[in-house]
């Protein structure tokens, strides 16, 4: 089957999709967006978290067909998404802007020159990234939480991120990163 949906503001068309394929599989293997991760493929770890019409979901549990006509934001589009939010524009990106975004040059070896969302920068600065496999899902979930709750308590952060497993950090630096992003966000307003 063919699935048409919007990914990071850009209309996408996936062909020859088998009915059993997940949104995660289509993103990773058909659209060249492997940022969403495949740690469990059973909805337990949160590493594949994306936003589907704004709602954080485990993309491994969403059949690709269910995304038909809908808007998906993945970690690859998080910086752009956050930028638009801070500019006060509506969700999503125009085709022209999306193409500009895709064409932007940066060093593929180090990522230098990449524009980052505040939550992405905070994860780097706080040491919340080790192996990094949980990071994309955590970033999408944490960014969504800060959108809803710009001044979260520690218990709020823990509750919001309790669907995202991390095996490396012991979560302390992830807590630090979200606190840092919230503080910087508060400073910016």
């Amino acid at each position: 089957m063919r699935v048409n949906f919007t990914v990071n503001g850009r209309p996408q068309e996936a062909d020859d999709v088998w009915e059993g394929e997940s949104l995660l599989y289509v993103l990773r293997e058909r659209l060249g967006l492997p940022g969403s991760k495949n740690a469990c493929e059973q909805g337990e770890c949160g590493s594949c978290t994306v936003r589907l019409d704004g709602v954080p979901v485990c993309s491994c549990l969403v059949a690709a067909g269910q995304a038909e006509g809908r808007e998906v934001v993945t970690v690859e589009g998080l910086a752009d998404y956050a930028k638009h939010r801070s500019c006060g524009s509506s969700r999503g990106t125009s085709l022209q802007e999306a193409q500009d975004w895709a064409a932007k040059g940066h060093d593929s070896q180090t990522g230098e020159g990449s524009e980052l969302a505040p939550i992405q920068q905070a994860f780097i600065d706080a040491g919340a990234v080790q192996c990094g496999f949980c990071t994309p899902g955590l970033l999408v979930a944490a960014d969504e939480m800060l959108e809803r709750n710009p001044n979260p308590s520690d218990a709020d952060i823990r509750e919001a991120l309790s669907g995202n497993l991390c095996r490396c950090t012991g979560y302390e630096k992830i807590m630090d990163a979200v606190r840092l992003a919230a503080a910087r966000q508060g400073e910016a307003v």
Partner: peptide
């Protein structure tokens, strides 16, 4: 010094190529 990871940016943008991302 607590210098930051050289692979940090790639890991937060989803561009870091894990073994399951190969194509």
């Amino acid at each position: 010094e607590s210098t930051l990871r050289p692979d940090g940016t790639l890991k937060v943008t989803g561009e870091f190529a894990y073994s399951s991302d190969m194509w």
